[in-house]
């Protein structure tokens, strides 16, 4: 048999400068209207919660019984609750708590997940198999139940709250980081770096971390809404943030009890909470598409 003629290949790979991955991702993200909307809405909501209280004429605990559960008006844009507190100011403060718990707990989960995943991915072999088997087993357990148990046993303390949530939400992150490390370890440029005699630390710093960063960013963005949801869920059951502090979750709980007479007490915090979740999810999905991250289970 004769051999086929050497057919010229149109695809020539050109080396891309380091910044272009992020630049390309940004160009792709910019085209995703929902993600941009999500990002913008997040910035607006965060600014509203951070700067808002300073501009508000009310404080979140200031009671005014002459203003008992008033519907939204020019005086109180979002109405007042049954203690006559200005709901807009309370939403700002609640947002600080909700977003704060979301970010802090996500950082906890990020730290645990990245360390665990990187450890498993780097060491490989039996250690890896054991570590990931543990993750598989933990995946199978009803974790929210354990968080409730933790909150019951150790009292309802906000620091413990996000530690508990963070300790529960790290599993996916660990899987992703490990998966990334494993694929990267196998790739030619890492082998090339090893063959060139680069030091381990340098390989980790210059090659592995920048390449694993994309998925980590994406899943951090997607963990925040999951964590906020868990916090609100616990607060709704009365097991999360305790009065006088209030998060959006506790406000929804209080609003739900009074929704028949004063629906704005439910609808407005629920709208803020849902909009934030929407925005984070859309932004996360957009980032995932832009950075072309795929979930892999192994």
């Amino acid at each position: 048999m004769t051999q086929s003629p050497p057919i010229t290949n149109a695809a020539t790979t050109t080396a891309e400068p380091g910044a272009s991955l992020w630049h390309d991702a940004w160009l792709r993200l910019r085209k995703n209207r929902l993600a941009i909307f999500g990002g913008a809405a997040l910035i607006v909501i965060s600014l509203f919660c951070l700067i808002g209280p300073a501009c508000s004429p009310y404080t979140y605990e200031q009671q005014d019984f002459s203003q008992y559960a008033k519907a939204p008006s020019t005086q109180h844009w979002f109405g007042t609750d049954k203690l006559g507190r200005d709901q807009m100011t309370r939403i700002m403060h609640g947002g600080r708590i909700s977003l704060g718990v979301g970010i802090c707990a996500t950082l906890v989960s990020l730290t645990i997940g990245v360390l665990y995943g990187a450890l498993a991915g780097f060491i490989g072999g039996k250690t890896d198999a054991t570590l990931m088997r543990i993750v598989d087993i933990l995946y199978a357990l009803p974790f929210t139940v354990f968080v409730i148990l933790l909150m019951v046993v150790f009292g309802r303390n906000i620091v413990l709250l996000f530690a508990a949530i963070g300790a529960v939400e790290w599993l996916t992150m660990a899987r992703i980081v490990r998966g990334q490390i494993l694929t990267l370890k196998k790739q030619e440029f890492i082998e090339a770096a090893i063959a060139l005699g680069l030091r381990k630390r340098r390989i980790i710093l210059r090659h592995l971390i920048p390449n694993a960063l994309g998925p980590i960013i994406v899943y951090t963005t997607l963990t925040i809404p999951a964590v906020m949801l868990l916090e609100a869920f616990l607060s709704f059951l009365g097991l999360g943030v305790q009065p006088p502090m209030s998060s959006w979750g506790t406000m929804i709980k209080d609003g739900a009890e009074l929704m028949e007479e004063f629906p704005w007490l439910l609808v407005i915090p629920a709208a803020f909470f849902s909009l934030t979740l929407f925005s984070l999810n859309f932004l996360g999905d957009g980032l995932r598409d832009a950075l072309d991250v795929r979930t892999s289970k192994d």
Partner: peptide, 23 residues
């Protein structure tokens, strides 16, 4: 050019023929 670039049809030792350029 295609026929010429089949190595088996060319004399042994001849330089491999390739079509310059790209589709």
């Amino acid at each position: 050019a295609l026929q010429k670039s089949i190595p088996a049809l060319q004399p042994k030792g001849a330089e491999l023929y390739t079509i310059a350029g790209m589709p």
